[in-house]
């Protein structure tokens, strides 16, 4: 479905990714974990096209997208959320969500300028669809006309998820979707993620530091450290893997254990 082969990315002397290879399976939730600076966000960045890897390739549905522009990848059905919220701060929740569906829509310059006709029809159809599939689904109806900048952090993250969902993605990349949330909000988001997987059979990649959530919902877990994959497998396998324990707790923990 989505695979990365021997990808390397470095910034000056820092190797954010080195010869990383992994694959996400259709319809599964793949979690990517690792200590701070392990290269998780960098991995998302080469998948969504914000950075180009210096070596290696990225494949999506057997198509080589290593050199495709980010907007082309979105059109293929890759959507993501950001670790540091990247909403359009001047816009309302609804406008942000509508932007997510940009690549699925058709009306161009002249349709838009004339508005009455094709653009209006498309706009109303889109609105109906988004209300049903995204806004109701993620329980955002009460805030749809508020400006995103006025929303609390947790809701902003949820709007970002909504915006990504509006793309009707085949692959959804979630970068720390519950960071900074309390237990209850975390459970809400976990439930949404499972619902998305079930309802649309979406392939989901999840970067998250909240281990209990990762272990609860993911089908496969990949552990990164210093840009390399150090373990992978089911949540259970990974939990008991000594290399993982070492990466998280440091070498001294080994002696203590």
């Amino acid at each position: 479905m989505l695979s990365v082969q021997e990808a390397s990315l470095s910034f000056g002397g820092i190797h954010a990714l080195s010869e990383l290879t992994f694959e996400a399976k259709q319809g599964e939730i793949t979690a990517i974990i690792g200590p701070n600076g392990a290269g998780k966000t960098s991995l998302f960045n080469i998948i969504s096209g914000f950075y180009k890897p210096q070596a290696g390739r990225v494949f999506f549905q057997d198509q080589d997208i290593t050199h495709a522009r980010p907007d082309k990848r979105a059109a293929l059905g890759i959507a993501r959320t950001f670790q540091n919220i990247a909403l359009f701060r001047g816009m309302t929740v609804l406008e942000n969500i509508k932007l997510g569906s940009h690549s699925r829509l058709k009306s161009g310059l002249f349709d838009s300028g004339i508005y009455y006709g094709a653009a209006r029809r498309e706009e109303i159809a889109l609105r109906n669809e988004l209300e049903r599939d995204v806004i109701d689904f993620l329980e955002l109806d009460h805030i749809r006309n508020l400006h995103v900048a006025t929303l609390p952090y947790g809701l902003q993250k949820r709007v970002e998820l909504a915006r990504a969902l509006a793309l009707q993605p085949k692959v959804l990349l979630l970068d720390e979707p519950v960071a900074g949330m309390n237990r209850e909000e975390t459970e809400d988001i976990a439930r949404f993620i499972l619902d998305i997987q079930e309802r649309w059979n979406t392939t989901i990649l999840l970067v998250e530091h909240d281990m209990s959530m990762v272990m609860d919902i993911s089908d496969q877990v990949i552990v990164l450290n210093f840009g390399k994959q150090i373990a992978s497998g089911t949540p259970k396998d990974v939990q008991n893997n000594p290399a993982v324990i070492e990466a998280y707790l440091g070498t001294s923990a080994k002696g203590a254990a």
Binding site: S48, G49, D71, A74, A75, L87, G90, L99, L167
Partner: peptide
């Protein structure tokens, strides 16, 4: 508002 996230949205 945000050219990079615009591009990543398609």
């Amino acid at each position: 508002d945000n050219d990079h996230s615009a591009e990543i949205l398609g």
